[in-house]
Simulated assay, not measured.
Amino acid sequence: MRLAVENAVIRLGGRTILNGVTLGVGPGEFVGLVGPNGAGKTTLLRLLAGLIAPATGRVTIDDRPLNDVSRDERARRLSAFFQNAGIGWPMRVREIVGLGRLPHRRTFAAESAADQEAIARAMAMTEVAGLADRIEPTLSSGERMRVLLARALCVEAEMLLADEPITALDPAHQLDVMALLRRVSHDGAGVIAVLHDLTLAARYCDRLVVMAEGRIVADGAPATALQDGLLRSVFGVTAQRGSHVDGGAYILPWARAGREPGETRP
């Protein structure tokens, strides 16, 4: 499956949030959307999910306009979760995860063996099986984030859209989730994730799309997309770079551009 947006413009509240954005993502790609606050990353993700419509431009699935694809087909082929998504009412964790199987079931039909296997698989992947009987309001923010990710993975869609999937997670679970998303993509699904941690984004993503002021300003492999000049102009930071003993390169935002490390200003 290839998900694409062409020359999209989004205007909200009299402001232009996206301005001429063109992007395509195919199977097996783990793409990180990065950029400063207010760059338009989550708006782009919502556009790709079909939650908002562009003023101009279009979104396509396999070159078909998104509006020509039925809701049922979209729900099976495209899965998304957003960090501020509401559950609606108190539910047990297993029930929440099970909602991801609704696109595969007829109305009022009971869970099939395949549904049950998919639910168990998604809960194991996100390490929430031990929370199965917990009610959603009793979860921590990090636990809730992993439950929402499990629900999205349970769809077993061809494309996964994830809005800040490692927000509120402790360092160990951040590493786990990034490794999981990379594994999902390498198993054949496309993954597009909004990320703020440039170190983890550069380490795990195959490709980074850098946004600023509603536009895409860089798109490529992490080492190509996160050049020093772009880090200064877009993020306002300088970075330290190096290589780990396993041979992997890393990038670490280090200081505000134009300031010495540790220097503060009023």
Rank of each mutant, 00 (worst) to 15 (best):
M1A: 03
A4V: 11
A4S: 15
N7I: 02
G13E: 09
G14L: 03
I17G: 01
I17D: 02
L18Q: 07
L23D: 12
G26R: 05
G26S: 01
F30A: 05
V31S: 09
G32M: 09
L33R: 14
N37F: 07
R46M: 14
R46A: 02
L51R: 12
A55C: 06
T56Y: 03
T56E: 13
T60C: 15
I61Q: 05
D62P: 05
R64C: 10
P65K: 10
R74K: 15
R74Y: 00
A80M: 07
F81K: 00
Q83Y: 09
G86C: 04
G88Q: 08
W89Q: 09
P90H: 00
V93L: 13
L102Y: 15
P103T: 08
M125H: 02
T126Y: 03
A129T: 15
R134S: 10
E136Q: 12
E136R: 00
T138N: 07
T138G: 04
G142P: 11
M145W: 00
R146C: 10
V147F: 00
L148W: 15
L148I: 13
L149Y: 07
R151F: 07
L153G: 04
L153V: 07
V155N: 06
E156F: 08
E156R: 15
E156Q: 15
A157H: 11
M159H: 13
P165T: 10
P165S: 12
I166R: 03
I166P: 04
A168M: 11
L169K: 12
L180Y: 09
L180T: 06
V184T: 11
S185C: 10
H186A: 00
V191G: 02
A193M: 08
A193T: 09
L195T: 08
T199G: 13
V209S: 01
E213K: 09
R215L: 02
V217D: 12
A218I: 08
D219L: 02
D219Y: 03
G220F: 04
A221I: 06
A221K: 12
A223L: 01
D228C: 00
L231S: 05
G236E: 07
H244T: 03
G247W: 05
G247N: 01
G247S: 08
Y250D: 00
Y250T: 03
I251H: 11
L252G: 11
A255N: 06
R256W: 02
A257G: 03
R259K: 06
E263A: 14
